[in-house]
Design a protein around this nucleic acid. Structure first.
Length: 257
DNA sequence: ATGGCAGGTATCACCTGA
């Protein structure tokens, strides 16, 4: 089973790029972030014609997540179901396929360290930990938590190390994500690749991609038995090279089920 | 140290992203 994650930065703008990619790279599950469209306006047709079942949680202008799967998913829910109003922003969707729970996340960006949005990001990550803990306690199978985490956990994941006041690599962000992973989740990509220079996002500005000034911030985190079943994990940079690309590239994990 | 590029909404400028 192949599970891909891709922040597409508007599914309406990127529809044809995603269709072409799926035709050339058939995956069993595709998790999308930043769809930026309400459910009623989501471009469903072409993806259904490719045989995918669509599960969508969108909002106007910002955020928005979706899961495409070749076979129907069960137990599909959206949001944390929390009390602090996190679910106004559509950043979480989950469902079960092949006895595996897929959790698709769009972690808040955080804007600037110590800003209001940064505090929101840290609170959101605490809520995520509770949400995943509950899912792990009530569920019976393995879990793949993937998406755009907006965090590079190690300096190796950045084209060059940045200061601790830089968003996406500040100590508090890394610590908050580390506490989530302590639930028993492992980075699928690092099972196969231990070197630096592998990125999933490049800034549109200042020719980020052309100069390979990238960050690895899109991840698959797997529970133990599923991690053992991972036989490959890679970033496909081809769709980052086309005209009007997303600023993120898709990341794919292959699981021997 | 700074700013740069892109998408969406509703302009004809502003917010957000990372």
């Amino acid at each position: 089973m192949k599970v891909a994650t891709w922040n597409v930065n508007s599914i309406r703008t990127r529809e044809q790029i995603v269709v072409k990619w799926l035709k050339n790279n058939p995956v069993d599950v595709l998790c999308l972030q930043e769809t930026k469209v309400i459910n009623e306006s989501f471009p469903r047709k072409a993806f259904k014609e490719l045989g995918y079942h669509l599960y969508i949680s969108g909002q106007k202008s910002y955020n928005g997540v979706a899961i495409f799967s070749t076979t129907p998913m069960t137990d599909v829910t959206t949001g944390f179901g929390d009390g602090e109003n996190f679910d106004v922003q559509k950043r979480v969707i989950t469902g079960v396929i092949n006895h595996t729970r897929i959790v698709n996340l769009y972690v808040p960006n955080g804007s600037v360290v110590k800003s209001e949005k940064y505090d929101y990001k840290l609170r959101w990550l605490k809520a995520l930990r509770k949400y995943l803990q509950d899912l792990l306690e009530t569920g019976s199978g393995e879990m793949c938590v993937c998406g755009d985490f907006n965090i590079a956990l190690h300096d190796l994941d950045i084209y060059k190390p940045r200061g601790e006041n830089h968003i996406m690599c500040s100590p508090a962000e890394r610590q908050a994500l580390q506490e989530v992973l302590e639930l028993g989740l492992e980075d699928a990509f690092r099972k196969f690749t231990t070197t630096g220079g592998h990125f999933s996002w490049w800034d549109y500005r200042a020719a980020g991609y052309a100069r390979n000034r990238g960050w690895r911030i899109d991840h698959h985190y797997l529970t133990g038995k599923l991690y053992e079943k991972a036989i490959n994990c890679w970033i496909d940079i081809e769709p980052r090279k086309v005209t009007k690309p997303s600023d993120h590239a898709p990341v794919i994990v292959e699981l021997q089920m």
